[in-house]
Amino acid sequence: MTHRRIPPTSFGPDGTSTGSRRDDENGDTRAGGDGDASADRDDGRSERAKREPMTVRPLRDRRYVVETDGGTYVVALDAGTCSCPDHEIRGERCKHLRRVAIEVTEGRLPAPDERVGVCAVCGVETFVPLTASGPRLCERHGFERGDAVHDRETGKLLVVTRVTERRADEYRTDEGRPIDEYPTNAAYGAHEPVVEAVYAESLGPAHGIDDARRYGFPASRLVPIDAGRDR
Rank of each mutant, 00 (worst) to 15 (best):
G208T: 11
L157R: 13
P178H: 03
P193A: 15
A101D: 04
R48Y: 05
C82W: 14
R41P: 00
R108M: 14
R145D: 07
G71K: 07
F143V: 08
A120P: 03
P110E: 07
C94L: 13
E67R: 10
H3F: 15
T16A: 10
D43H: 13
T81H: 08
R221F: 05
T18Q: 03
T16S: 10
D113P: 01
E192T: 10
G33Y: 13
V159D: 00
E196T: 15
H207D: 05
V124N: 08
D86P: 09
D42R: 02
G155L: 11
K50V: 02
L97R: 02
G176E: 02
R90Y: 07
S20Y: 09
E52G: 05
E175R: 10
Y171N: 12
D69M: 07
D36E: 02
R4T: 09
Y199P: 00
R45M: 10
R48A: 15
E67M: 03
R41A: 14
K50S: 04
F11P: 01
F143Y: 07
Y215F: 15
R136F: 00
G12V: 01
R167L: 14
E201R: 15
V195C: 06
T29S: 14
D28V: 15
T184L: 07
A200S: 13
K95P: 08
R229T: 15
G123A: 12
G228R: 14
E192M: 10
S202P: 01
P183C: 14
R90H: 08
V149L: 00
G44F: 00
R145Q: 07
L203T: 08
Y188L: 03
H150G: 05
R172P: 05
C84N: 05
V104D: 02
G32A: 06
L97W: 02
D40H: 12
L130P: 00
A76T: 01
E153D: 08
E181Y: 00
P183W: 13
P218R: 10
A219G: 13
G80V: 12
T184R: 06
S133Y: 11
A186P: 06
N26M: 06
R93E: 05
A168N: 02
D210K: 15
L158N: 00
V75R: 01
V116G: 04
D28Q: 11
D169S: 07
E175Y: 08
R99A: 15
V65S: 12
R51G: 03
T164H: 04
V118Q: 09
D147W: 04
T29I: 05
P224A: 09
P85C: 11
L109W: 06
G176S: 06
A31F: 10
G134W: 06
Y182H: 15
G216F: 07
P135L: 05
Y171D: 14
D34I: 05
E165L: 04
G19A: 04
M54H: 08
R136L: 00
I179R: 08
E196Y: 09
G123S: 13
P193E: 14
A76N: 07
Y73H: 14
D169I: 08
T126Y: 01
T2H: 01
C138M: 05
Y182M: 14
S220I: 04
N26Q: 08
V163S: 13
V159P: 00
P112C: 09
D169K: 01
R30H: 12
D34T: 09
F127I: 10
A200Q: 12
